[in-house]
Write a protein that binds this DNA or RNA. Structure first.
Lengths: 204, 204
DNA sequence: GACCTAAACGGAGGCACCTCCGCTTATCGC
DNA sequence: GCGATAAGCGGAGGTGCCTCCGTTTAGGTC
């Protein structure tokens, strides 16, 4: 329970025990920033974000000294959300259903984050430490969902999960027209049907 | 004298006939900006530049809508200056002397522009149209100076001008210590002596 | 529950960016 | 020279960035 006898709590990613109010403000800032970045883009006014979160500019800058740090935090939060959703679905739904649902969420999620597209791409290309930490966890979570469905026999076993994820990402990239929402949904369904095709058990 | 009968003066790089006051302000802005960029770096306050040039912010932004445009203009101006100096020296001095003098100027010039180093490198790497227009004129001017000295017999003929220019650039890059000024001067002299070594005629 | 202190807050203030628009002036035809 | 007028000027103003520091408060101690 307690291992902080020595004072070297400098673990690479120390989850320092923030004070309750600090943690509240931090979370709220990330939440508001995610919305702002998604709609306005990553150039959204930091002061506006602070204002909407109900804190002063000083608080924002204390938590996130630069815009980049805030962007990273938002990205990390979103990734965690996707993984958590996968876990939750895996626990509460049938494998087949969980997979289909998560795929829809993934594309919908990506599409709403249009504003962050460019900077995320930059982040991925740079050698940011963030990437090392979050890289791969989404594909991993997705693979796990697919494996479960394969085991249940509702989708075919001969499809590479990375390929499917890549396809989903492409859909997001192409989400530009006025009706991209519906089209994306249909495309995802199509992919899901492809997975079902020739499975050992019919899936509803 | 006048070829503007038709209204298509949209040459790629139109040297539009600016009004006298506009041209004055423009030149003054470039001059001040060059100094500011060299000392403070390319992040120098644009408002400060406008103030020092004795014009309003509006005037600066009308001439140079973005910081990048201003940087480009400064760079272009500097390149033109170097080329003009080469022409002038070639006309008014002995080939041998002209070459030595220009080399010293080149290094001195580069050294004072430390603040622009990074952004210039960026400019060179990017596919800015600026580069296509100015690329090569400095090496060309330098080669011309060297050729004249070779013809006069005061330097040896078997040295590649591009190599020498590259050496001069290196000196500039290494100009970091407290006495870089003197050291640079000595290094340039050394290179010049190397060029003289074994020339057909002794040069003073 | 009272008190203490380090942690956290938040907003005023200083600086910079950039735009907008009423005023000034160079230039040209007469 | 003398308008006319388009070109140019410049600074006020609205916004955003970021810091600094006096004030507030969470969370532990007795």
């Amino acid at each position: 329970m307690q291992s902080d006898r020595t004072s070297h709590n400098q673990t690479p990613i120390a989850d320092k025990p923030l004070r309750a109010d600090a943690r509240r403000n931090r979370d709220r800032l990330i939440e508001v920033a995610a919305k702002a970045f998604a709609s306005t883009g990553v150039d959204a006014s930091l002061e506006a974000i602070a204002r909407e979160a109900g804190v002063g500019a000083g608080t924002l800058y204390r938590h996130f000294p630069t815009r980049e740090v805030l962007i990273e935090a938002v990205y990390r939060h979103e990734v965690e959300g996707l993984v958590a959703a996968a876990d939750e679905l895996a626990r509460t739904r049938e494998p087949n259903e969980a997979l289909a649902e998560w795929m829809q969420r993934f594309v919908g999620y990506m599409a709403t984050k249009r504003g962050m597209r460019d900077s995320l791409r930059l982040l991925l290309e740079s050698n940011s430490p963030l990437f090392a930490q979050t890289s791969g966890v989404v594909p991993l979570a997705f693979k796990s969902l697919m494996d479960k469905a394969v085991q249940a026999g509702t989708i075919r076993p001969d499809v590479n999960s990375a390929d499917v994820l890549h396809a989903l990402s492409s859909i997001y990239s192409a989400s530009d027209g006025p009706d991209w929402q519906d089209r994306s949904r249909r495309l995802v369904s199509l992919i899901m049907d492809g997975l079902r095709y020739g499975a050992s058990r019919a899936s509803k």
